[in-house]
Design a protein around this nucleic acid. Sequence first.
DNA 1: AAGGCATCCGTAAACGTTTACGGTAGTATT
DNA 2: AATACTACCGTAAACGTTTACGGATGCCTT
Lengths: 345, 345
Amino acid sequence: MSIGIKGLAEHLNLSIGTVSRALNDRPDVNPETRKRVGEAALALGYVPNQSGRSLRRGQTGVIAFMMETGHEITGQGDAFFMSIFDGVQTVLGRHHLDLVALLCPSDEDAGDYLKRMVSRGIADGIIISSTKRIDPRIDFLASRGVPFVTLGRSSTDAGQPWIDIDFEAMARQAIDRLVARGHERIAVTVPDDDANLGHVFLDSARQAHSAHGLVLDPELALPFRPNEAGGYAVAGRLLALPERPTAVVLLNPSLAAGLYRGLSEAGVRPGRDIAVIGRESPQSPYLSPSLTRFREDLFGCGMALCEALLASMPRYADIYPTGTIRRIWPTELIDGESDAFRAGR
Amino acid sequence: MSIGIKGLAEHLNLSIGTVSRALNDRPDVNPETRKRVGEAALALGYVPNQSGRSLRRGQTGVIAFMMETGHEITGQGDAFFMSIFDGVQTVLGRHHLDLVALLCPSDEDAGDYLKRMVSRGIADGIIISSTKRIDPRIDFLASRGVPFVTLGRSSTDAGQPWIDIDFEAMARQAIDRLVARGHERIAVTVPDDDANLGHVFLDSARQAHSAHGLVLDPELALPFRPNEAGGYAVAGRLLALPERPTAVVLLNPSLAAGLYRGLSEAGVRPGRDIAVIGRESPQSPYLSPSLTRFREDLFGCGMALCEALLASMPRYADIYPTGTIRRIWPTELIDGESDAFRAGR
DNA sequence: AAGGCATCCGTAAACGTTTACGGTAGTATT
DNA sequence: AATACTACCGTAAACGTTTACGGATGCCTT
């Protein structure tokens, strides 16, 4: 098809070795020759064949981010992943690495899919997200020796680096705040699958309750699907409870909009009739009444994630601090009006 | 690192050629040998090196879908891309091909990014989405000879296959319907960039107006950002118009929720005070009053997209109909209450 | 002037596959 | 029994790079 390094070398009356060195900015090549080669490459539209290069170098220059299409990327928090991608790509850019997303079909087992992609050798390192409490992908990647990092902890531990948002602090702060305002029946939301963050959040919420001498009614742990419709459904379930909670904490960014819609249809107004604490999303700044919510520096989180990955790759060991990086990523509470409602005494 | 075909061959006392043939299910190899090889491969955990294979075969077995992270994947219609992915992957699965997403950083030129990815040889075929009226990516891919298909037409035409949603019909049906209900001041929404669908939609809306002896007031073409906040902004701009339109047509699936929110804050109720026609999104089934909206079979669209791509690849020429496929994908109007409002006589 | 050194470049092997070709058996055909 | 065919397998070249090694040239040192 197009020209290779061989054709380029012939055209320049040089050996392919020299051309390769010139293109890769290696030391022992005449600056003038280097210039000639560069110009000719541009003129002839030469692009290195990545397969040949990967074969020889044993690396691809690509980092992969795995996500599942069935879960609706967006549902997990809209700008959430996009912001993280931006952070990841910022770091990758410094090393001439690129990012691709591995899109696991909804009807396929995530483990099988990952296995296929890894055996394709599509990437030098992998980021997996939405970790489950028990996540076979982790053991698999570890056994294969592929550098990887997880966004989210897991009880499946292979000693890999991870970055995770501080859901403990989130639960504690939310509960503390609500209890201080007189609430005793506080609903919390939990994912409807084995997502690890759900377990972390629920455990912490329970602990925070007992720290105040309260106990979290199991009935008040409402399962959700991570999208707007899921928030709407939560509103329905919440209003249908025999003894209505006076407050609710939303674990997922997408829920607030749907919850607001569901509540408003029932004439229940956040901040006046019920206290709501949620998470930052593209919609949240526009919600009315303004949402009291947790926000994270997701761009920074993406950067940290990427740095943790690179630090675990031998090739970049000299650039990034050694040792496996594991960080709990801080979250910040933004005051709004949605939790202004105080429970009766 | 791990075992290669050479080690496998030594372990079996076979030549690498035979092992390769056995693994690739080629005819001239003893069934028993084939079995032995397969078992040994499994036992030793052999996985073919994709770089070596690609180098030799000249293909990667991967199809790439390019999107821009800056535009917020979700913003362009949430489940929109996810449904399309599902369709694409269904077809790809039939040919042992896989899908990856190329995530162009928001701050990088889409053309440059694509150029890098193509030169990486990361995929055998490329799908590009969100085509612009003038889209340099198209010329580039054509000049490189990479098989590709676009989701969306463009005035940059390189003879490539495309699939595009029927925005003409959408504009026509919406305007016809609204005019029939007495509306004469109908606002339409258009993307705030050079997206091709914006041009198509606006042109058709104009034609539909003149077919009824009306003219579309340029002031009523409201620019939008493709997400919920964009819908909210549209509501604001719409209500601020000196002479308020009696109807509005939303081109993007994400707009309706934000628009509803904006309108409701101003006490304006869709279907009672203004007619609204939008597009299907994950939220739309839950909106109240129910949204009159256009819906497409996006799963099927993804399949068609993928088939159009494969049909343009010599390798699959015998499986898919020859010739470059270009299809306008039908859209369907779902009745709701949001456009019940009839303009005065 | 002979040796040493630096600079630049060519040679060839290697990365892990695939595949056209030829070779060796064994079996069937004349 | 010579021939032809089939079934299976090994050999080796090829894909497009990178890179260790050595060779050639010219300059500087003694």
